[in-house]
Structure formats: C-alpha cells, structure tokens
Amino acid sequence: MKRSLAVLTVAVLLASGACSTEETPSPSSASPSPSSAAPPSASASASTSPSPAPDCVTRTLEGLDLAERAGQLLMIGVAVNAPSGAGDTLRRYHVGGAFLRGRSTHTAAALKSDIAGLQKRAELPMLVAVDQEGGSVQTLKGPDFPRLPSAHRLGSGSPAALRDTTRESARRLTGIGVNLNLAPVADTVPTSIGADNPPIGAFRREFGSDPVRVAAAIRTVVPASQDAGVLTTLKHFPGLGRVRVNTDVSTGATDNTATVDDPYLAPFKAGIDAGSAAVMISSARYPKIDPGAVAAFSKPIITGLLREKIGFEGLVISDDLGAARAVTGVPPAQRATRFVAAGGDMVLTIVPSDAAPMAGALIAKAESDQSFRSRVDDAARHVLQTKEKAGLLRCD
C-alpha cells in the first residue's frame, strides 16, 4: 500500500489537535475561586477536544489508492489443489478475495499450508471462499472433510442436527484458513417444479419447498456457521428456485413470478436478520422487478430491492461472472462495471485471466465518472467491513 497504517494514525492525531500547545497552570499557581470561575464555553471545549480517530476500516481504506480499491472488488477463482498458481495475479491486481474452485481430497494440513502461502502474497488479507454446501456441492472432501448431507435432507431433519452439522463443518473450514462459505442456499423450489429446476432442485440444494420452512433453516445455519468463524453468503438473490434453466450453462433463465413482495424472499430476509455477512446475486432475469437486465446488472434488484427495501448493509457478491453462460454476451470488463454500478460490491469470476480487464475497467470508469468513483469507494468499504468481521484487519 502507498502509506502505512501507522503513518495514517499519526497524521490523524496531529490533524485532530491531540497535541495541544496550551500551557497548563502549575498546582502552586493561583486559581480563581469556584464562585468566580466561569465554565468553559461549548465552543472552547470543541476547539480543544480531540476528534475521534477513524475506525480501522476507514484508516485502511484511506491507505489504498484507486487501483488498490478496485482490486478489493474482485474475487478470483484459484485451483483448490494448486492455489499458488494464481498468486502473482492476485498480488498484481490487489485482489480482495480468492475462491477455491474445483474439488479436493487433500488433507487439512496441506490445504492450510497452501492457503497461508496464498495469504502471504496478498497486500491485504483476502477473503478465502469455498462452495461447501453439502450434497453434490462440496469443494472439500476426504478424511478431514466428511461428506455433508444435502440441504434438502438437512432441511427435513431437526434444527439441532442442522445446527450441529453446520457448526462442525465451519470449524473444519476455519481451521485451514477459509473465512467465507458461499452458502447457504436460500432458494425455495416449489413442489410443482422439483427436479425440473436445473440449478437447485435437480441437485437437492434447497432446504425445502415452503419458504417459511426454508427461512427457519436459514435462521439456524447463519449463526451456527458465523459463530464458528466462517461468514455466510445467502444465495441466489432474489431466488433461483422457479427457473427452468441453469445460468452456469445456458442463457434465458427467467423467473416470471418474482416481485418485490415475493414470499420466496422470506429466507433471504431471515438470513439478513440473522446477520449474514454476504448475499450473492443471481444471473437470472426477473421481469416483474426489472425487465431490462439480469439480476447481476440490475440496479432495481440490487440497490432498490436488496439494499433499500430489505435493508441489507453487508457484502453483495455476484454469482460467477467469468465462465457462466448467462453473461457471456457481455465482455468481462463490462460485467465488472455493470455489477458495481448496479450496487454490487465484489465481482466473482472463476477465470483468473479476467482480473486484468475487470480491474482495468473499474479503474478507468472511476477516473472518468465521479459517481462511479464514489460507488467503487463504497463497495471497497463493504469489502473491508466484511474482512473486519472475519477478523482479517489489524490496525493496532
């Protein structure tokens, strides 16, 4: 970074007037009697009282230049069994997060060493994420990471079993340096669609077919994971449970039912109320909310619905904007700027080579558009706040 946090702290203290030049009377000097001493005026008190030092997130943000702030808005996919291969890219573009893509049966010790090595090459500690849902979507397996039941199975069981399974899985993740799980799935798949819902129902990734039941499961999962040290990501907002197309492999995924008052938003609201650190935005279309764009590029969905109507103040992360077929009609550079302009904070791409065009586009647009520059700053703050929540920022 361009400036150390220690230098920033000294500068803030000097600017706030913490080092006063006013002379203090000695104990032996005469002092006025209580009856004749006038109380200090409010203006005098304000002029001599030091301003509070900026919080850790603010101090960190102020130490980042534009390129570094833009880099914090990227989460790049790295091979789970060989993450160091992307280390140069992560450092060159000041990347804020690494997503461990693929599947692994490596030991916890080996994975911990790899992740620690990756973190050492980062200017700021990174959010390190996995897809550790359970069932068919489980990045880490093997003797140190037992197979997890699917969400559908866990959702039909007891809350205690769901809580204990989630907590134990999170403890294993935090033990190797993973601090963000791209889970739980908050989508509801109606029984009328079931397995005909390719992205969720076909793999039993949903906790149930009733949004009230799904919401109850989400309320259990979020604190169980986060209290064990792994932040959660509610996905895929505003819901993929009613689409008939998988956004990863096809275009045209559309939910023609969803509205801003959709009952299927209840699980997302429950997770937000439970304190989930992040929400992931889908790449499907929701014409009754925004007929003009997929959710990842939709200001009415991200800013209007998620931020303003529901009130989410945490990290907004995209679904994959790298290899996903749903967005291949848009160049990678524009995927990044459109997501951030819509209100998103962190662009996820599983394609490491996307880092260069995405970072370059974010910087260029911020340099030419002051309102977008403000949006970049706001998004970077959300990323840093999430890192602070994960225990990654140190400003002592």
Results as ranks from 00 to 15, higher is better:
residue 355 A to C: 05
residue 226 Q to I: 02
residue 27 P to D: 12
residue 339 F to L: 00
residue 40 P to M: 04
residue 154 L to R: 05
residue 2 K to R: 13
residue 6 A to T: 06
residue 288 K to G: 12
residue 263 P to K: 15
residue 202 A to V: 03
residue 32 P to T: 11
residue 245 V to Y: 03
residue 223 P to T: 02
residue 221 V to E: 05
residue 58 T to K: 02
residue 338 R to N: 12
residue 264 Y to G: 03
residue 373 R to Q: 15
residue 232 T to G: 01
residue 94 H to Q: 08
residue 1 M to L: 11
residue 26 S to R: 08
residue 99 F to E: 01
residue 118 L to V: 08
residue 172 R to H: 06
residue 114 D to Q: 10
residue 70 A to Y: 05
residue 323 A to T: 10
residue 309 K to T: 06
residue 293 A to D: 07
residue 314 G to I: 05
residue 395 C to T: 12
residue 352 P to F: 09
residue 314 G to W: 08
residue 302 I to Q: 15
residue 92 R to A: 09
residue 241 G to V: 01
residue 310 I to V: 10
residue 42 A to F: 11
residue 199 P to Y: 11
residue 203 F to R: 07
residue 313 E to V: 06
residue 329 G to W: 02
residue 240 L to V: 06
residue 236 H to K: 11
residue 127 L to H: 04
residue 9 T to G: 01
residue 231 L to N: 05
residue 249 V to Y: 12
residue 49 S to C: 00
residue 131 D to R: 07
residue 60 T to D: 03
residue 69 R to K: 08
residue 396 D to Q: 08
residue 115 I to Y: 13
residue 381 R to E: 04
residue 89 T to C: 01
residue 200 I to D: 06
residue 280 M to S: 10
residue 111 L to M: 00
residue 267 P to E: 15
residue 362 L to S: 02
residue 75 M to L: 04
residue 235 K to P: 04
residue 225 S to M: 07
residue 22 E to Y: 09
residue 222 V to N: 03
residue 362 L to M: 07
residue 252 G to Q: 11
residue 236 H to Y: 00
residue 394 R to N: 15
residue 184 P to K: 10
residue 271 G to W: 10
residue 344 G to P: 07
residue 312 F to C: 00
residue 146 P to V: 15
residue 262 D to I: 04
residue 323 A to D: 05
residue 216 A to Y: 09
residue 340 V to E: 10
residue 146 P to R: 01
residue 358 M to E: 15
residue 332 P to I: 14
residue 153 R to D: 13
residue 244 R to E: 00
residue 223 P to S: 03
residue 141 K to T: 13
residue 191 T to E: 11
residue 229 G to R: 00
residue 174 T to N: 00
residue 367 E to F: 11
residue 86 A to Q: 04
residue 275 G to F: 08
residue 274 A to Y: 15
residue 215 A to R: 03
residue 205 R to G: 07
residue 275 G to Q: 14
residue 321 L to W: 14
residue 127 L to I: 13
residue 49 S to F: 10
residue 54 P to G: 14
residue 85 G to A: 08
residue 141 K to I: 06
residue 23 E to F: 14
residue 166 T to N: 00
residue 345 D to K: 04
residue 145 F to K: 02
residue 135 G to Q: 09
residue 344 G to H: 07
residue 31 S to W: 13
residue 366 A to K: 03
residue 336 A to S: 12
residue 62 E to R: 08
residue 133 E to P: 06
residue 341 A to P: 00
residue 250 S to D: 06
residue 106 H to S: 11
residue 329 G to C: 00
residue 188 T to I: 08
residue 253 A to K: 10
residue 390 A to E: 03
residue 106 H to N: 05
residue 284 A to C: 12
residue 114 D to R: 03
residue 1 M to E: 11
residue 72 Q to D: 02
residue 70 A to I: 02
residue 327 V to F: 10
residue 363 I to N: 01
residue 127 L to E: 03
residue 159 P to L: 10
residue 354 D to K: 12
residue 233 T to K: 02
residue 280 M to F: 14
residue 351 V to Q: 15
residue 78 V to T: 13
residue 267 P to R: 13
residue 361 A to C: 13
residue 217 A to P: 11
residue 100 L to H: 09
residue 33 S to V: 13
residue 188 T to H: 07
residue 225 S to D: 01
residue 53 A to L: 15
residue 210 D to S: 12
residue 135 G to Y: 09
residue 55 D to K: 01
residue 20 S to N: 13
residue 13 L to T: 09
residue 327 V to H: 04
residue 127 L to R: 01
residue 84 S to T: 12
residue 238 P to M: 12
residue 151 A to V: 05
residue 256 N to E: 11
residue 151 A to D: 13
residue 289 I to A: 06
residue 294 V to Q: 08
residue 246 N to G: 11
